[in-house]
């Protein structure tokens, strides 16, 4: 048997363990895709709803109905005056038209759809009555990829995955190894500690790389995500993110002996970032007073930088502020964690 370097075998062991753990495969690869599909479908940009109009059956209602064709986006029902009042109250129609010598519109001016319906119906009726438009208009409709919710979401999901992967993949792993005394057992061999920690980091990087490729490819394939920035820049940001959150994971794990304590600590660290760092909605929604805090979180920096690169094609130098912030988080976490890390 050819003897291999312990570092390689440690990486190999780590990757094997990960791939043999169904939960890991689910959380790392399947879950973000499910989330993207679910949220992408729920918040897709829909065509405008059709306009529901009730026409009170009376002399001249035929004329009104024919002026409001389905092709114009109208859905018209002809009904009695009583029923029209009911439907308007229940919101089943946006507007009631009472035909007669002069038209009467009944609607609630506080309902946006009713106001829109009044404008559209009035326009259509006037035109049917022979109004001549003094100004000629052409309309060009644009729905650009890049401004949709799914475009906002995918970089956020990538950031979220890098965070939870780093925290669990390093923090939880080490505490688990400590609680089964495996860490102690390894320390009793001539294994170099740098090989060991390096292997954990390396397997994290490999996983982050796979996650990123999968999520971006999926976004491109299914949602026609357009990646504006360079893939190199995106990869570099992802690797930097993996470094930062491995450091935080290591910090959480450095003295914790119990799995439960570690889970608690980990959630405590991650929760503010889940909420504030712009995974699902923009952190700009928070009040100006807390913005400096929100912007100082490493996940905010990562998400902002990923979005700027993926959606706006930002270059690496333009993100240097965010990169420096992340580097600072990573270096400080590592320095502190390695200093106080307990091996046995």
């Amino acid at each position: 048997m050819s003897r291999r370097h312990p570092f390689l075998l440690l990486v190999l062991a780590r990757m094997r363990e990960l791939m043999r753990e169904p939960e890991v495969v689910f959380w790392v690869f399947v879950f973000p895709i499910l989330l993207a599909v679910g949220l992408g479908v729920a918040f897709r940009n829909k065509p405008p709803d059709e306009i529901a109009v009730g026409v009170v059956a009376a002399a001249g209602s035929d004329r009104v109905v024919s002026a409001l064709p389905p092709a114009g986006g109208f859905r018209v029902v002809t009904i009695s005056a009583d029923e029209a009042a009911d439907r308007l109250r229940l919101g089943k129609v946006a507007l009631v038209v009472v035909p007669g010598p002069s038209y009467e519109y009944r609607y609630d001016p506080t309902r946006p759809d009713s106001v829109l319906a009044r404008l559209k119906v009035h326009d259509a009726l006037e035109r049917a009555a022979g109004r001549a438009d003094p100004v000629e208009v052409h309309e060009t409709l644009v729905t650009e990829p890049g401004a949709r919710y799914i475009d906002f979401l995918i970089p956020g999901l990538l950031g979220m995955n890098i965070m939870s992967g780093g925290m669990w993949g390093v923090g939880f792993l080490l505490v688990d190894m400590r609680s089964r005394r495996l860490l102690k057992r390894l320390v009793a061999t001539p294994m170099r500690r740098a090989d060991f920690l390096g292997a954990i980091m390396t397997s994290r990087m490999i996983l982050v790389f796979a996650e990123m490729a999968l999520l971006l490819f999926f976004g491109w394939l299914v949602f026609h995500l357009v990646i504006q920035g360079s893939l190199w820049t995106i990869t570099l940001l992802a690797v930097l993110g993996a470094f930062v959150f491995s450091g935080l994971g290591l910090l959480v794990a450095c003295r914790t002996a119990k799995i439960e304590t570690a889970s608690g600590l980990m959630n405590l660290v991650m929760l503010p970032m889940f909420v504030c760092s712009g995974i699902f909605f923009s952190p700009d929604r928070f009040p100006a007073a807390v913005q400096p805090l929100v912007k100082a979180l490493p996940l905010t920096a990562l998400n902002d930088a990923l979005r700027a690169t993926i959606l706006e094609g930002a270059t690496l130098p333009s993100q240097s502020g965010r990169i420096l912030l992340m580097l600072a988080w990573g270096l400080v976490s590592f320095a502190v964690a390695l200093k106080i890390f307990r091996w046995n």
Partner: peptide, 15 residues
């Protein structure tokens, strides 16, 4: 030069 078997070590489950 030493070999060690600790009291109760749980080695990696899935190797």
């Amino acid at each position: 030069r030493i070999g060690v078997s600790l009291q109760e070590t749980r080695l990696a489950d899935k190797l």
